[in-house]
Design a protein around this nucleic acid. Sequence first.
DNA 1: ATAATTTTGCGATTCATTATCATAATCGAT
DNA 2: ATCGATTATGATAATGAATCGCAAAATTAT
Lengths: 147, 147
Amino acid sequence: MKKEEALLKDHISKHNLKVTKERSAILRAFLDSERHITAEELYRNMREDGSSIGLATIYRTLNLFCESGLAEQRQFGDGQARYELTYNVKHHDHLICEECHRIIEFENQEIEALQEKVAQKNGFKIFSHKLELYGICASCSAKKTAS
Amino acid sequence: MKKEEALLKDHISKHNLKVTKERSAILRAFLDSERHITAEELYRNMREDGSSIGLATIYRTLNLFCESGLAEQRQFGDGQARYELTYNVKHHDHLICEECHRIIEFENQEIEALQEKVAQKNGFKIFSHKLELYGICASCSAKKTAS
DNA sequence: ATAATTTTGCGATTCATTATCATAATCGAT
DNA sequence: ATCGATTATGATAATGAATCGCAAAATTAT
């Protein structure tokens, strides 16, 4: 059993929930899918593979993944929530190309440390943060100057 | 005439738009209101003061403010867009208390510089960024440990 | 003032997400 | 394995924020 599956089952048993074939199937599909997927995209992917799981269940299950600590929900400003596996994944932030919508992950320990400093100065204890850099990537930039 | 009003009128005349009493009233109310206001809040504030301007017009006008460079729209993850005066206001980021929803603004030049460095390393040109620190403020923290 | 154009308010509409509810599946105890 | 209690599911309705369409009203250039 994969450790992601074990984590989910642990959360399920601790909260009097139930292991269902739908939840197992959605977890498998989620782990297989590209990062930063939306509920709709995951729904369509699974339908194409013959699944008959409903969209509401996808939403419910993705929320369950977030509650269990497997995943996190992100809002990149396009109106749809995106879900990302975060269990056993190093923390990182995002660079987003507004042209081709490519998402690059990065981590920067110096920035994290400075954030802590800012929080401390303001008497805050940080639980989470969101750092997103929006711009244009090298290849889109090249395409633009070419045209 | 305030410089905010002048900026808006400049944008209006450059785009063959029209100065209306609604737009002027919304601008006045917006400048008077607390920062990070939602369209609904601004709508309710104005209604309470006897305005009969419709909600759709508030939305349209706040978008106009953003297009004119007066304001910016922000998403703090509670599902409603918030609007903030940014014209003639120094750039800053946000600390958000998840307990009392207080929003503190801060600026940190070191972090900004590091962001540029990250972008450069990845071949990106940054247009904008979003840095939000979510946590609990000192007074809420004190209340919690007291109870 | 007139005509051309833009704006407004209202209600209808969209879109993502959640709630409802009847039926089905799961799980622990027998 | 079966039963009973509880939770999960799928379909659809409902929600809430934001936008759209349209007829009527307001604005601007002439």
